[in-house]
Simulated scan of single mutants.
Amino acid sequence: MARIPYADPTAPEHEAAAAHIVASRKKLGHLHRMLLHSPPVAMGWIEMYDAVRRKTLLSGKLRELAMCQVAAINGADYEWAAHAPIALQEGATQAQLDALPDWSASEAFDATERAALALCDAMTRHVHVPEEVFAAARAVLPERELVELVVTIAGYNCVSRVLEALGINGADKLA
């Protein structure tokens, strides 16, 4: 159960931000309804995450594996439920998703995926990335994609923290 009520998208102060979200996402989900409490934050959120999800060169598969790994590490079930199906659509396998908790012991991932997951683990669990972990990611990704991966990992750590702090779990009915 969410810790505060979801914002009313029909309230005059929320209408523009709600319309902006719907124009991008086609619907107002639980997270978006909560973000409407701050229309400028809601609109900025959509702009940033649209850039991360739709305007990067980073492969969709790598992006979604990183998002799922962040969700798994942070125990963000709502985030996992949202991104696991997208990961499968982007080319990840169910075996890869199942192996994420112990990915380093799995043979389901190629060298690029392993480097990305190591970077994801370091950023999510420790914030500070060891030089050897960063060097491994840098060796397999062009600079633009490396920056995009870092921003994706950081951004989806933000998502899981917002979801968990506000108690957004998708089970709540939206009026």
Rank of each mutant, 00 (worst) to 15 (best):
V52E: 00
E132F: 10
G91A: 08
N157T: 08
E79M: 04
G29S: 08
L65D: 01
N169S: 11
A105E: 15
A51L: 09
L163Y: 02
I46H: 04
A72N: 08
H126S: 15
I46V: 15
E113P: 07
V140N: 08
A76T: 00
H20N: 11
Q69V: 01
P5C: 09
A7H: 09
C158D: 04
M1C: 10
L166I: 00
L149R: 02
W45V: 01
L166Q: 02
A111D: 15
L28A: 08
C120W: 11
G29A: 12
L88C: 03
K173R: 14
D98W: 14
Q69F: 12
R114S: 13
Q96K: 10
T124K: 12
F134T: 01
V140K: 05
P39Q: 11
T56G: 09
L62M: 03
K26Y: 09
D50Y: 06
V140R: 05
M43W: 10
A111K: 03
A139H: 06
E164C: 02
P142W: 06
A87Q: 02
L174I: 11
H83L: 06
A76K: 01
A11D: 15
G155T: 01
L57W: 09
L28P: 04
C120H: 04
H128Y: 13
I86M: 14
I4D: 10
G44V: 07
P9K: 14
M48Y: 13
E90K: 10
A122P: 08
A165S: 07
A135C: 07
A136R: 10
S59A: 06
A81D: 14
R114V: 15
E13T: 07
W103A: 12
K26V: 11
L88D: 02
D77P: 00
G44I: 08
D121S: 08
R161E: 02
T93W: 05
V147Y: 01
R138E: 15
A116L: 07
V133K: 02
E113F: 00
H30P: 12
G60I: 06
G155V: 03
E13D: 15
A51G: 11
G167N: 00
A42R: 05
Q89V: 13
P85F: 02
H126M: 09
R114K: 15
K173H: 11
N169G: 12
I153N: 00
F109M: 10
D110W: 02
Y156N: 00
W103M: 13
S38G: 10
D121A: 04
E148Y: 03
T10Y: 15
G91H: 03
L88N: 02
N74E: 09
R125L: 15
P9D: 14
S160L: 03
A2Y: 00
L58F: 05
D50G: 08
G167E: 03
W103H: 14
K55A: 10
W45K: 06
K27C: 10
A154S: 10
R161F: 06
T152M: 05
A17T: 13
D98Q: 15
Q96A: 04
V41C: 07
A154E: 04
R114G: 08
A82Q: 15
A87V: 05
S59P: 11
F109H: 03
V140M: 05
A171K: 10
A105F: 07
I153M: 02
A18W: 12
I21F: 05
E113D: 07
Q94F: 14
A137E: 06
D121H: 13
L58V: 09
I4P: 04
E13W: 03
T152Y: 05
D110S: 11
Y156A: 04
S59C: 01
L146Q: 07
I153L: 04
A122L: 07
K27G: 06
